[in-house]
Every structure is written in structure tokens, then in C-alpha cells.
Design a protein around this nucleic acid. Sequence first.
DNA 1: ATAATCAATAAGTATGAATTATCAAATAGA
DNA 2: TCTATTTGATAATTCATACTTATTGATTAT
Lengths: 295, 295
Amino acid sequence: MNYQIELRHFIYFLAVAEELHYRKAAEKLFISQPGLSTQIKQMEEILGTQLFVRDKKKVSLTPAGEFLKKEVEFILNHLEQTKKQVKLIGDGQLGEVRIGFLGSAMQNVVPDLLLGLKEKFPTIHTTLEELSNRAQINAILADRLDLGFVRLSRVPKGLDVRPVFEDTFSLVLPEEHPLDKGNFRNIDQVANEDFILFSQDYSPMYYDTVLSICEDSGFVPHVSHKSVHAQTIFKLVENKLGIAIVPTTLQYGFQMKVKFIEMKNIKQRAVLSMVWKTDNRNPALQKGMDLLMEL
Amino acid sequence: MNYQIELRHFIYFLAVAEELHYRKAAEKLFISQPGLSTQIKQMEEILGTQLFVRDKKKVSLTPAGEFLKKEVEFILNHLEQTKKQVKLIGDGQLGEVRIGFLGSAMQNVVPDLLLGLKEKFPTIHTTLEELSNRAQINAILADRLDLGFVRLSRVPKGLDVRPVFEDTFSLVLPEEHPLDKGNFRNIDQVANEDFILFSQDYSPMYYDTVLSICEDSGFVPHVSHKSVHAQTIFKLVENKLGIAIVPTTLQYGFQMKVKFIEMKNIKQRAVLSMVWKTDNRNPALQKGMDLLMEL
DNA sequence: ATAATCAATAAGTATGAATTATCAAATAGA
DNA sequence: TCTATTTGATAATTCATACTTATTGATTAT
């Protein structure tokens, strides 16, 4: 006696409510009429209410049945929709990829990735957040981020890395500086100037790399200022407070009175890598990864 | 192989999604663990998607499972309500409206609404529950509640809001306090006292508003205690542990040795709003809304 | 190493949804 | 009135499958 309502009941009920005829409804459902009769009866028992009036050759809905019909239609539709959505999310066609990036990555790879994603998987949402290397690693480990773009040589266990872009370094000088593309030979020509660099804790790899560039030319740079924003660094150079060494692509996207001298002859490169958790379960991420692997 | 999803699956799924532990979930459901395992597996097969990740001693939800969990919660709640409504209609009633409210709303609008409903639609049942702002919003989204009375400036997408009552703020002081309606000019006269306020997470809007009242008079209040019950706040004031600022109508319905000074001259108002789901399907709610629109 | 704990698998049971066969009641046609 | 036909409800039976117990393999903790 103590049964539980099941979706089967709803489907049967709806058929009868539409046909208002047990035999026809049973036919439509590909079951026998007695089976349908008992199931509807059971349903009425569970709900404690009459749903149909059967008198003299006629089946009709009670007010309660009328109300239930509308609800069952809604519920079954909603369910169908939900099933579809679940499948889509499981297949990675729908969902969200949370991306973090260093400011300096905004010039190249990230915009391409976003455009490609939008085009190939328009139903995948993306959220973007500019974060430091360290903040990105922490966020990925805590599952607040799916994908990061960092400049790091090593990452904690459990994370995967893949280099996605190699950039040369460029010297950044005030426009009025005597050195230019024509007379520039080697970095030791500016060995005695003040240097403005990105902070160590913003990107230790960058900092070490810049130091090694100078070391290769036999001098230790005097670092007068440090910042975490390219904007700030360029502004300081513009005001002749020092010179800088930055990844070359950083020159695009700013309106500053500074000039860039690309140093192609040195071996160091600014490597941008993407990082993600090895066992990330977000299927939408896989799609993004597949896309990036092709780039 | 060609099974059909049933409500049983959803109930089982929800138990596992909540416990994230098959044996415990099975215990809660009063079935055996292997039975539960096979049912969940079958469910995943029907949906064509992995819902749980079982690896090394740990069960967790996939994104698809995460999504499904929210949907299942909604569906099961909605179903429960539908069953109730059907029964009520079958018994000759119009239905049920589930109302939530902040404690501070009990003094004015809610009682009027209830009385009006009872008079015009004596066959509509109402259930009342005192809940925080946040709890009300969650309950409405999950279809556990039809109508809420909250103090919020913004609500999530999919919900409608309508202000129903504007209240001034009053200062609450111990009876023996030197300040009274006669000599009170401005709130800065109590700038150096301790303040007892409703907790931020109970009603962020209230908290912000009270701070802005003080700010307008050029001081930052020292908040010594926070509570979620008006009763508690008044008790603390009575015992001279501080003073409070509350919506004026809160003064009715309590027997306390405190006095109220209404601050009509300040611009801030305590706004009580009603909230409901835009696509709520409860026909009884419509009736209640019509009534409230007239008030 | 040993024990403990987890979910998955295997085999058997039992619940209850289905079937077929039949009935009672009502209508329609002669 | 009689019969034929149609309706949904019962009764008896069959059959699918959700469930049980027993066990395994994998992993972790002591």
C-alpha cells in the first residue's frame, strides 16, 4: 500500500489525461489496458485524490487532475531539458572555463584562445582574471581556476605545464636616449644605467632571466625600481628614471614615449606557459585544451 | 539496456551527491550499498554521462553531476509541492502559499497579507517560516518557498522583487539613558557609544544602511555586538551593553525596558520587499499577489 | 605485514509491473 | 426485448528487475 510515485505514473497519467480513454491511451503507451488501469488507480491512492471521473462511457479529469496535468507537462518537459543539459555538460559542449593570465599574456595567446573558443564552442562560457603567477597556481590548486597563463620554470606536483609562446626580450629606452636600433650592439652598452624591472614575487622567472642576460654580458644591473604593471614600468622609463628589459610583445597596446630595441642575438627567451591541474574534471577545459594544442 | 529514468534514481542520486559516500548514502536510504551502486551506474548509463568520479577512496561530483544535483533538488521539491497541491485541490481547497519572512517583517505587512488572504480566499492554506534573507532566496530558487519578505537591494536573476513597506529607523536606548525625544538632535550625539546591530550575513543591506547613517553624521560606529534576533538586541540594550538602530516598527510586540527615538530627519529608510520566482507555477500565489498589489 | 574500509561484481530472491483472460455495466442497433 | 459491442475493473499468472547477501579487488591506515 505504501508505494512511491514514479515518473512512469506521470507518463501514464498524461496519456490518459490527453486521450481521456484508457484503451487508446494504453495502445499509445504500448501496454495493456488493465495494467494502465491499475497504475492510475495506484497513483490516485498514493496522492489520496481522485484524478479521473469514470462514469457511464466517459472519462474526464477532476479539478485536481486538471491541475496535475499542467504540472506533469511542466515536470516532464523540464526533465527532458535537464537530461539534455546534463549530456551536453558531460560532453563538454556546455559549461565554463575559468582562465587566469599574467598581464603580459594579454598581447598574444589569450585573445586567440578566447576567439577560437567562442567560434568553435559558442556555448562554452569563459571567465577571465588577471593574476600573478603565484595567485594563479594557488587558484588552480584550489580549483578556483581551470587554466592559467604563467611565466614559471617549475610548477607544484599535480599540475601540468606546456609552453605556448616564446618571446624575445627587448630593451626599453626613453625616446631621447642616444642608443637606437642602428648603434646597438650589446646590452653591456647600458651596464651603468638604472634598471626598472617586474617585481621578483610577481614573476621570479622573469627576474632571474633578466639578471642572467646581464650576467652573460659580464655585469650586474643596478635595479632602481620594481613594479607589477607594464604601464608603470613604461611610464618610469618615459620619465628617464631608468631603462627596462621586457618581453618584446609587451610593446603593443601601449601609447608611450619609449622605444624598443629587440635583442634577437641573446639566447634567453620569455616563455609563456599554460598550467592546469592534471586531474581537472571540467570537460569544457578539454575542449579548450584541444583547441590550444592546434595553435 | 533501454531503461527509463525514474524518481527513485533521483532520490538515490541526491543521497549520494549529499553524502559523497555510497555506504552512508545507502544506509540513509535503507537499502544495501550494492543496490545503490548499480542504480547510480544505471542512471549514468541512461543519461550517457558520468555523474560521479570514484577514485582512490573518494567520491566526488563531475560538473554534469553538480548541475544535475541542483536540478534534482528543484524537481523533487516542486514535486512534493505539487503532490500537496493536488491533495488540497482534491479536498476542495485552492492550494497553498508558502511564505518566508524576516523577523522584522512580522510587525507590519505579513500579518495584513495573511488576514486579507484568509478573508478573500478562505480555502487557500498558508505556511509561514521565519528565515534569513539568504535562506529565503535559496528556498525560493529551489521551490521550497513561494513568497519571501526580505531586505535586499538586489536579488538573483529569475526572481522578481517589489518594495512593500518603507520604514524609518529608530534609535534604541536603555530607559535610563539621558537622551530622549526632547533633547535628541542628531545621531552624532551617541557617536562614542557601543552599537549593537543585526549581523551582516543576516541582512547585509540593513548593516550597510546603518553604517551609512553614521557616516552621514561623520563617524564610524563601534559595533560591540551583533545578533540575528531583535529580542536579543533589545535585551542587550536593556542591560546597557550598547545602543541600537533598528527599523521603527520593530518597537511593537516586545516588552522591554528600552526607549525608541524615531529619526525622521535622516534620508535612509528600511525597505521591506517581497520576492518570488518569476516563473512560479503555484496558482494560489497569483491570488496572494493580486491581493498584495492592492495594499 | 595485517586489518580495515571503500565501491564494484556475482548470484540468487522477491517485489510488483506487466500480461492474458474474464467480468460487469452501459450503450446501440435490430 | 435481445444481442453485439464497447467501456473500464478484477483475477490469476508471468516476468522483469530492483533488491538482497556474499565476495572481491583496490587502497589506506596501523
